[in-house]
Nucleic acid binder design. Sequence first.
DNA 1: CCATAGTAGTATATAATGTCAAGTGCTTGA
DNA 2: TCAAGCACTTGACATTATATACTACTATGG
Lengths: 111, 111
Amino acid sequence: MNEGDFTCPAYRAIDLLQEKWVLHIVRTLLTGPKGFNELSREVGGCNPATLAQRLDHLEALGIVKKTVQSVMPPKTSYRLTASGQALIEVVEAIDRWARRHLKDPAPARRT
Amino acid sequence: MNEGDFTCPAYRAIDLLQEKWVLHIVRTLLTGPKGFNELSREVGGCNPATLAQRLDHLEALGIVKKTVQSVMPPKTSYRLTASGQALIEVVEAIDRWARRHLKDPAPARRT
DNA sequence: CCATAGTAGTATATAATGTCAAGTGCTTGA
DNA sequence: TCAAGCACTTGACATTATATACTACTATGG
């Protein structure tokens, strides 16, 4: 299947970060802890099934921490762990690159 | 469908970079120009159909430049443009993060 | 001369993945 | 009482990626 170099940390990191929505989720959580629907709205466009799966994955990797505040009127909180917070450097690098090189390859018309 | 903030450069950059194989391709091309099969081997695991599609996309975005050196004994060369080279900062940020936070959650040893 | 391997891809069928729409159980507010 | 919010789950459907084989051509070796 994939014969990529999994002994290389960067290779594995890329594999992780290129999963759909992961970077959007991390970027959104960098602004603070959020509940499920709140996160869903701010990420924009990710459906609950995918979001739940991604959050599970990120939690398993120790990037996100899930806290259940109350069970009955459901209240959950997703926050970044220290590892997750450290991704701010990646997000900022992307942001800097975007500002400089991604002028506006705009999709033909603006809404 | 996606209600993400496309007026935000970072949002668009993330959308772009999270496409499967894109970061792997860029990272590989940072080590110098490569031919199609050569790139395919070094990226590891990406099949030709996907690779061709990604390269088309990256070329359309001005991140990669394709040069056909000879037609008959086919020889092509893919290289990063200035914009593409600038992504080294993103790749290095990922690399730094990976070294610090992605110890070795590698489950599968090898085949 | 013919098989093998290398170049850059394309074709097609199938597997994996993501999305849509709706639904669950429960509470609060009107 | 009824709509709306919370945090998800489920199942059908669509999109996307994959494996595998193949095109067309050259160059090398037996």
